[in-house]
Amino acid sequence: MTIVAKIPCTIVTGFLGAGKTTLVRHVIEHAKGRRLAILVNEFGDVGFDRSFLAACGVEGCTEESIVELPNGCICCTVADDFVPALETLLARDEPPEHILIETSGLALPKPLVQAFQWPAIRSRVTVDGVVAVVDGPAVATGAFADDPEASAAQRAADTSVDHDNPLEEVFEDQLLCADLVVLNKADLLDAASLAKVRAEVEAHLPRAVKLIETQNGAIDPRVLLGLGAAAEDDLANRPSHHGEGEDHDHDDFETVALPVRPAVTAGDLAARVEKAAETEGVLRIKGFVEVEGKPMRLVVQGVGRRVSHHFDRPWRAGEARDGRLVVIGLKGFDQGAVARALAG
């Protein structure tokens, strides 16, 4: 009897803006002919991550190689979106040799790992590893931790106040499921801050997990692909804030896609985005915008109050140049204030 080897899948998780898409793109660019397929999931409807990956310009990285799952977080749409998409990839005449799955920044990875136990796919694929990408500067500024003294004061003043930190919960769940942690943007931290961040991340890990420091997601694909974790058979060692079968939603977060007029200069747009990012509760801003007189598409990314931009490729003939930015934030953030700031 011929035993067909399972196709390995790598799940790339990490909070909003950690650098998951940049890391996946780096893997694509250095795959050296390996036949990859990418499933990318976004919390928003601009399709930023798929378009950014498809613009890599690498031979063999075709539009068909990248499948977008846009309906919210993949951890909540396993049956409706993820499993059918995976089955479609497996049914190809030339199935991929390795599948990369980039989750939304708000997704919990464990429900996705559990899906690999489904009879329809269990015999055909395996979770080679869960890679958690961490935004080093965000951890250093305390983005995922409450101020214990402030929380205690609030609790004393009003016992009905809910002190759960939704950012910390998602961040922890992503680390608790990891087989490898990539501490990204390490170049933006000094030695003392980097050591502090490493210690904080390691304090969240329930078991021995390798931690690699990097910048711009530049990791040798051989480090990420081939972990051999078979994570679907190791769920007991991957604790979560949510028990099996427990409902998980994202009521603490919301997203909006806003039109943005063409920018006079890239700097002009960056200033508007920086102003928008100052709005209380805004976590992530990303999208594509036209710059007047420029043939190239401008990529804009904001994480917290850090904003970056670059031109990634020429606008295609007949391509709509309607600028749009997707903004993700805590529930109730002032969308009007964001829109006004982007309008300039």
Rank of each mutant, 00 (worst) to 15 (best):
T126G: 11
V170N: 02
C56Y: 05
G105I: 00
P84R: 05
D179I: 00
V134D: 08
R92Y: 03
E59C: 04
L86Y: 10
A150H: 07
R155T: 14
E102G: 02
A55Q: 09
G129D: 02
S51E: 12
C75D: 15
E169P: 00
V67T: 15
S160E: 08
G105M: 00
D80W: 03
A138Y: 08
A178S: 10
F48W: 05
F82L: 13
D162W: 05
E97T: 05
F116M: 07
V134N: 12
E68L: 13
A79R: 15
V58Q: 14
D158Q: 01
L69Q: 05
P70Y: 04
G105P: 00
E94K: 02
Q117K: 13
P109N: 08
T126E: 09
E168R: 15
D164K: 13
E97Q: 15
V170E: 13
R155H: 14
D45W: 04
I101T: 11
V127C: 12
V78F: 06
C75F: 06
A150T: 12
R50H: 06
A157E: 13
K110G: 03
Q174G: 01
I101A: 12
L53C: 04
L69M: 08
V83N: 02
S160C: 03
L86T: 03
R50W: 02
K110Q: 06
E87D: 01
N165C: 09
F52Q: 10
V78M: 03
E172S: 10
P84E: 09
I121P: 01
L69R: 06
G105K: 02
D135A: 07
E102S: 07
P84Q: 08
N184C: 00
E168I: 01
D81Q: 13
L112N: 01
N184V: 07
L108D: 15
V161A: 12
T159Y: 00
E63D: 14
L53D: 01
C76L: 12
V161M: 09
T88L: 10
F48G: 00
V131F: 01
A153W: 12
L112G: 06
D135R: 08
G72A: 06
I99A: 04
L183S: 04
Q174D: 11
H163V: 11
G129C: 11
